[in-house]
C-alpha cells in the first residue's frame, strides 16, 4: 500500500503541473473561440453574471478581490477556447452551486422570483382598472354608503369579501 503510493509519487515526479479543467465537467467547447474586443466584452458580461464568492454581493466583473480577478481570468480563457456562456455558467455552478449565479435560473422554485412580479403586475393592473371603473360610476362612491338595512345578509357578506364594502 505504502509502496504503491511511493511508486505513484515517483511516476508523478517530473510530470507537468495540471489544474482541474472545465472539460472534466462540461465537456469540449461548443462554441467558437473568441478574441480581441469581443472576448473582452463577453468576459465582462459573463463576469457580471457570476458572484464573487469572497465578496459581499459584488459580481466577478465588479470586484477587485484576487479571487474575482482569477475567476474573471478563467472566464476569459474559457471563452478564448470556445466555451459558450451556458457551459461557463454550468462550470462555475458545478463547483459553487446556484449561489454563484447572480441571475437566477428559470427553474424549480427559483422561477418564482421571475414570475411573482409579473403576477403582481397583472393583478395590480386589474385592481387599478376595477378601481377606476368603480370610482367613475357616479352614485356608488359619492353616496355616504351606510349599508342598506334591507339587504340580504348573504349578499352583504359577499360584497364585503369582494370589495371591502365600499
Amino acid at each position: 500500500m505504502v509502496a504503491a503510493a511511493m511508486l505513484a509519487a515517483a511516476l508523478a515526479f517530473g510530470q507537468a503541473a495540471q489544474v482541474p479543467d472545465a472539460a472534466q465537467f462540461v465537456g469540449p467547447p461548443q462554441g467558437r473561440p473568441l478574441a480581441g474586443e469581443e472576448l473582452k466584452e463577453r468576459t465582462q458580461y459573463i463576469g457580471g453574471l457570476l458572484r464573487c464568492p469572497v465578496c459581499q454581493g459584488l459580481s466577478v466583473s465588479d470586484s477587485p478581490a484576487e479571487m474575482a480577478v482569477n475567476m474573471k481570468k478563467q472566464v476569459g480563457e474559457l471563452l478564448a477556447r470556445g466555451y459558450t456562456e451556458e457551459q461557463i455558467l454550468q462550470y462555475f455552478e458545478h463547483s459553487y452551486g446556484q449561489f454563484v449565479l447572480l441571475k437566477p435560473k428559470f427553474q424549480g422554485v427559483n422561477a418564482l422570483v421571475w414570475l411573482l412580479p409579473v403576477i403582481v403586475l397583472v393583478l395590480g393592473a386589474a385592481v387599478v382598472f376595477m378601481k377606476m371603473r368603480k370610482l367613475a360610476q357616479p352614485s356608488v362612491a359619492a353616496a355616504p354608503a351606510p349599508p342598506a338595512p334591507a339587504e340580504d345578509p348573504y349578499v352583504a357578506r359577499v360584497r364585503e369579501m369582494v370589495g371591502g364594502g365600499k
Binding site: M1, A5, A8, Q18, F25
Partner: peptide, 23 residues
C-alpha cells in the same frame, strides 16, 4: 473530487490527487 497535479512547495515535485486513490 476534481483532479489536479500541482507543484509541491519545497521539493518542486508534481503531486497529483489520483496518486492517493485507495485511502
Amino acid at each position: 473530487a476534481p483532479s489536479f497535479a500541482l507543484r509541491e512547495v519545497g521539493t518542486g515535485k508534481t503531486i497529483g490527487l489520483e496518486q492517493f486513490r485507495g485511502k
